[in-house]
């Protein structure tokens, strides 16, 4: 007959799924406010944008898909709000096929919040396939891959784009996504054209970019929902001023509980494993 440790070791995974579901839904309905302390890698992006002179051009590469919207969306919104607050000239583009409509929705909604004028304060270039080629070609001229913007207006007819040719005319690139495309921005834009780059990536791909942070190939890193929550904390007064919903901060409530659940599950699993392997050892000790 199976004892409790056997049962725990062979726990039906559907119980675990149920526990995760509850750990996600309960704090969502009953949030517990906990203090969020921004990390240095997020602060450095915030400070960089904060210190840029008004009117400086910056590129926001929103290379994320609907599937990672929950993590990348709050990052993108916080970054774009900060850029508009600082009156920077923002070029938005995407190298993700599914990201074109998402990036457009993002751009339009945040521009409306700040009453920004299209073509003067920001430009949306849209999507182009084959990311590595696009990143390389922008190093020469935006117009090679993007002769026109998303709405088919020639770049030379867009007032803010007349002054912008390639990476040399940008203060920095902030890329939102993670995975293959982030690596391409690192290799082709940062390494080849020495442009300043910061990344906002999903939590799962965050750890691999710490090496690039230390080697100063990127000047900042926003990792997952936590990074977005840190950025929202830095912009808290702005969010409060505009009465905006702090989605990432709220999401951190859920993440808190799910992390605790996984830690608890891991410990329970190990106790069962240890008891199963050394039952006598535990008995003599007890």
């Amino acid at each position: 007959m199976m004892n409790i440790w056997d049962k725990l070791l062979n726990l039906d995974r559907r119980f675990i799924y149920l526990a995760v579901f509850l750990a996600a839904i309960i704090p969502f309905l009953f949030p517990v406010g906990l203090e969020i302390n921004p990390t240095q890698e997020v602060i450095s992006i915030y400070n960089f944008i904060e210190e840029l002179p008004e009117g400086t051009a910056i590129l926001l590469a929103a290379d994320y898909d609907p599937q990672t919207e929950a993590e990348n969306g709050p990052q993108a919104r916080a970054l774009l709000r900060h850029m508009f607050k600082r009156n920077l000239k923002v070029i938005i583009m995407t190298l993700s096929q599914d990201g074109a409509a998402l990036a457009e929705m993002l751009t339009k909604s945040i521009a409306e919040e700040y009453e920004k004028e299209y073509g003067v304060d920001y430009t949306y270039l849209g999507y182009k396939p084959y990311p590595s080629i696009i990143i390389l070609s922008i190093g020469q001229d935006f117009r090679i891959s993007y002769p026109a913007d998303f709405y088919d207006t020639k770049l030379n007819d867009i007032p803010m784009m007349r002054e912008i040719k390639n990476y040399n005319d940008l203060a920095a690139i902030i890329q939102i996504g993670g995975g293959n495309v982030s690596n391409m921005w690192l290799t082709y834009a940062q390494e080849r054209y020495k442009v300043k780059l910061a990344l906002a990536v999903t939590a799962v791909s965050g750890p691999q970019y710490y090496a690039f942070l230390q080697s100063k190939q990127i000047f900042g890193l926003i990792g997952g929902l936590k990074g977005a929550a840190e950025y929202e904390t830095l912009l808290e007064s702005e969010y409060d001023r505009l009465h905006l919903h702090k989605k990432a901060i709220q999401g951190m409530n859920v993440q808190n509980f799910v992390h605790i659940l996984i830690i608890a599950l891991t410990i329970i699993g190990n106790i069962a494993f240890f008891m199963k392997r050394h039952p006598k050892h535990m008995k003599t000790k007890g």
Partner: peptide, 29 residues
């Protein structure tokens, strides 16, 4: 907006369930 994005986000969110289950099963000292 209302079909494609939610379906994709749902697939991604499955990761949370799978990570918990994989961690429980495989993380052993």
């Amino acid at each position: 907006e209302f079909i494609y994005i939610p379906i994709q986000a749902t697939m991604f969110s499955l990761l949370a369930f799978y990570i918990a289950s994989a961690a429980y099963r495989a993380f052993r000292a």
